[in-house]
Amino acid sequence: MSTEPFINCEHVSCTYGNAAVLDDVYMQVNRGEFVGVVGPSGSGKTTLLKAILGTHPVAHGSITMQPKLTLGYVPQVETVDWYFPVTVEEVIVMTRSKSSWWPRISQAERKAVREVLDRLGIGEVANRHIRELSGGQQQRVFLARAMFRNPDILIMDEPTSGVDVRTRHEVLHLLADLHADGLTILLTTHDLNGLAAHLPRLVCLNKRVIADGNPRDVLTPSVLESTYGAPMEVLEHGGMPLVVDHGRVPMRGEGK
């Protein structure tokens, strides 16, 4: 078994036009890790994922991956066209586009789709149109699509963005189970308390890597202020760090 990192980003810089989005980013993801990338809007989280996936060019530096590494990618659900005329089954089988050309879904594929959906607890939605799903089901369907490739590493962009608390818990438990089964996971999130604080490793990003390590070490007021550019307090709750935003604005009528 190779001991090389799955993904190795060395001095990576990316730009949009003349504007630098990532600057000299250094980060490794090793087999079996569960890594969360946090940072404010525009900090380069999604660009970093896109650079790793090869859909955004790297201006300087390099990103190397283990040979024949299979990636499973789950985009932000907000980017999905929910009116597109496809069923859940069709969405999942899409990932076999390279290995099979036959338009019709085979019995073997149908069985495999059912297995992956059952594993994620949504076996009953296979024949539904994607618009007919709840928020949690939508997230699971796109997770199922990524899992259908039997990936070595799962890459997710904001998996809990725009979902309610219950769905967030479902997603978190699901990812914890997949990680416990040996899957390597790299995700981005805005959700410091609901998701990031639960992960074994966090990378704080704001164009460059501000800090990288265990949430207990990384979620500190100084690191968070450097990352977000705003003062934050970190409390401890149930043995976990709890980030409190100091940007409280008094509401009209308050204090009268």
Partner: peptide, 19 residues
């Protein structure tokens, strides 16, 4: 058929999936 469907629905993920 599959490549056209995939790249029409989700070009980024299609690219990652080898299309």
């Amino acid at each position: 058929y599959r490549k056209l469907l995939f790249s029409t629905f989700d070009p980024d993920v299609a690219h990652v999936s080898g299309v």
